[in-house]
Design a protein around this nucleic acid. Sequence first.
RNA 1: AGUCCUGUGGUGUAAUGGUGAGCAUACAAUACUUUGAAUAUUGUGGUUCAGGUUCGAGUCCUGACAGGACUACCA
Length: 554
Amino acid sequence: MESKVSLNFVEEIVEKDLESGKHASIHTRFPPEPNGFLHIGHASSLCLNFGLKTKYNGKCNLRFDDTNPSTEETRYVEAIKKDIQWLGFEWDNELYTSDYFDQLYDWAVVLINKGLAYVDDSTAEEIAEQKGTPTKAGTGNDFRNRSIDENLELFKKMKDGVFDNGAKVLRAKIDMAAPNMLMRDPLIYRIKKEKHHRTGDKWNIYPMYDFAHGQSDSIEEITHSVCTLEFENHRPLYNWFIEKLDIFPSRQIEFARRNLSHTVMSKRKLLQLVNENHVSGWDDPRMPTISGYRRRGYTAASIRNFANEIGIARRENIIDVSRLEFSARQDLNKVSTRVMAVLDPLKLVITNYPKGEMEWVELENNPEDERKTAHRMPFSGELYIERADFMKDPPKKFFRLGPDRMSRLKAGYIIRCDGFEEDENGNVTQLNCTYFPESKSGQDNSGLKAKGVLHWVSIEHAETAEVRLYDRLFTDENPLGHEDKDFKEFINPDSLKVVEKAYIEPFLTNAKEGQHFQFLRMGYFTKDSDSTEDNLVFNRTVTLRDSWAKAKGK
RNA sequence: AGUCCUGUGGUGUAAUGGUGAGCAUACAAUACUUUGAAUAUUGUGGUUCAGGUUCGAGUCCUGACAGGACUACCA
């Protein structure tokens, strides 16, 4: 027997429905509107819907909710499909709400025939006015009492393009005094003479979300229709249509959308960042989009793990972005090839190393990997090390180089710093060191000990690359949480730092896009798509944990 | 103000009236370490409040308080 693991509240509902025999099997769906790219919040929905499919041996459709031709584009459809596949999910059917436009039209006619829908000639303003407020009941108008025949005729004319945009709408006839404002005769069809990305010019009218989503669920016999909390108030309407139309009773279940700290998640806001060039595009490595994270170097597994770890519930939340970074490190640690690169170089000369000589040393590819493979890197008497790895006057707790201090060059030798040179401004320009030949990595019988271990590259053999270092896009944990301030005021001016000329070991010139590297002691990196033949570009996915930096900051 | 929803360590999430409120992360410390990484061990820290029901309440009831959704021809 498997041990009882706790279920999330959706799984509980599913298990109950399966046990009671309400459903023999389950069917979920992932229903994005193709008006933008998928973001990390969608990953939770994806993991939930496809996770249910897998766990309970059911099915999950991909359905594009394309009922608003003004905002939807085929390029978004393609981007969304690519992201879902990259994350590792397989849908059973690729469907479109627009496939159901004929059926939806017929159902609207059914409602009219039942006296449950009417054509309203009022303007948008009049309708809003008559709708009342949350605390004040709405009032009806005379159009509410149109005859069935007249409604039928007018609705057909709406479809046939007789009327202009905004001239008329079709509304469900429910209750203008309902406490739930969505039940105050909601609009179900509007005239929109626009070209649709799939149906072209066929339609002059398009169904509203409420008259399309639930019905699409029914058509596909979706058993559990999971959506976010903002649709909670729509559920009575969702159920009203099912009842009046007497169609397959899909059940809507809401959960709280996952919010990440230091970013924004709504597609509208993300589109704004793209359009106003605050970022380079939907796949800018600073964006919380799936494509942004992919380009930045996150693995699909790390995103899935993150989504599964944070779980789902019905309460509001802001998940600290460090949680996502943890997931990234956890997976990257297992799959990244270790290499050396110096981002802020300081020249180091080994005075007792044979002039003009070099040798190859071995650097293990990944200490976590049982196979224990390695690659070779060139070592010589003139190296670059990281500027931060030397201090003229180091504190006791500093493990790295300083006058008369020893450190190990990773995969190489232990060295001692004998002295340094500086310019007239006191900037250190060169370190002069001696090395201990018998201390070579793997065959060390020097008896020497060095606490610090430094990464390095051989100056003569190093190649160069551009390195992009990313920080959070917003300085505020919750950029949307300030009533008096626009979220863009919190954009982090230092979210991208470019190192034009970093020195990399030659092995890295063979890097391929999609490969993951750990630049030893510097973090995880991946090759960016901006790379060209003679200009390699690397993105830093995430830094390593750095307890020294933390201790130093105190 | 009306209807609906939600309050569990800093954060996220479990506990389905019954053990000392669990897990993860974050934070702190120690060990180990040829990455100040990883790993291992340990520690700090929580049920919004007030009543009520019950042998027993994080869980059920009532009220308060706090937060959120709803007044788009968007989804």
